[in-house]
């Protein structure tokens, strides 16, 4: 009877309260992860400061930050960052659009998959850097070839992610859509898109990671500005602090852009996010 319901709920309430970690524990955990790098950095700083090493090849953190500050003051840093961000952004955009479209077509339509997928997989087997000479011949030494290389790097994980996600959508959930007589478009909008979204976000993040990888490759090949140029310049002029400064900035930008995707997707993945939190606790 309906009057039994409250009893039933009480008995079967999921154990959310048990799983919620205390506030202190939630903040302590990331701090724990920072302990090792901080200790290493401080240790090295101390070693150089005490004169046990001259720190020429491995500059101490203070010298790296001084380099960053100096680059920032001269306005050079901003120029390099903008150049690199622009390339990554453009390449990422092209790669995502192409990967999403082709991945969706291949995932949704089996004829297209049989037609397209073998070729795409074969192209994927080519180490992407092997394209560089060809891209330079075709597209020139300037921006176009760099953006193309980044786009190629971004394309494959996005393509695979979208196709795989569509293929693995639960047939049982699709059947629910069918029983409510959803048409092709409504089925995509109300069932497939939300079902695919978590895997899509993951593939975007993987794609972005590869985008950052390939921007370095592209800028090492030939560039007059960009963070990759800073790396090369630091090597040729024997300035390890500048190389490490560029690496630190790469790390910050990479993390930041990844975080942006995460934050942008969060409102749509709340249903899943909560799941991870309970499970991870």
């Amino acid at each position: 009877m309906i009057s039994d319901a409250p009893v039933l709920q009480q008995a079967s309430e999921p154990a959310e309260n048990v799983a919620a970690p205390s506030r202190a524990a939630r903040y302590a955990r990331p701090l724990l992860g920072a302990l090792l790098p901080l200790a290493l950095a401080l240790g090295w700083e101390l070693v150089v400061w005490l004169g046990w090493s001259n720190g020429r090849l491995v500059p101490p953190p203070s010298r790296i930050f001084a380099t960053i500050a100096e680059l920032a003051r001269s306005g050079e840093l901003v120029r390099h960052i903008i150049a690199t961000l622009w390339r990554v952004g453009l390449g990422f955009a092209f790669g995502v659009v192409a990967g999403t479209l082709l991945g969706a077509v291949s995932g949704y339509w089996s004829l297209a998959r049989r037609l397209l997928d073998p070729t795409v997989q074969a192209l994927r087997a080519i180490p992407s850097l092997a394209w560089v000479p060809l891209f330079i011949l075709w597209l020139g030494i300037f921006e176009t070839s760099k953006v193309a290389l980044i786009a190629v790097g971004v394309f494959f994980p996005v393509y695979l992610g979208v196709m795989g996600a569509i293929l693995s959508v639960d047939r049982k959930i699709v059947e629910v859509g069918r029983t409510f007589r959803l048409s092709g478009f409504a089925m995509i909008r109300r069932i497939l898109l939300p079902a695919v979204l978590p895997a899509y976000v993951v593939s975007l993040r993987v794609g972005l990671g590869l985008g950052w990888m390939f921007v370095v490759a592209a800028e090492l090949i030939g560039a007059s500005e960009g963070l990759g140029y800073l790396l090369l310049d630091g090597q040729q002029l024997g300035k390890p602090a500048q190389i490490l400064a560029a690496i630190v900035i790469f790390a910050i930008l990479g993390k930041l852009t990844d975080w942006l995707i995460e934050v942008a997707a969060a409102p749509f993945l709340r249903w899943q996010d909560a799941f991870v939190r309970v499970k991870g606790a």
């Binding site: 039933l8 709920q9 999921p14 959310e16 799941f275």
Partner: peptide, 10 residues
Amino acid sequence: AWPRELSGGQ
């Protein structure tokens, strides 16, 4: 509530 927060009967 989200579906995952329900018991089987709910």
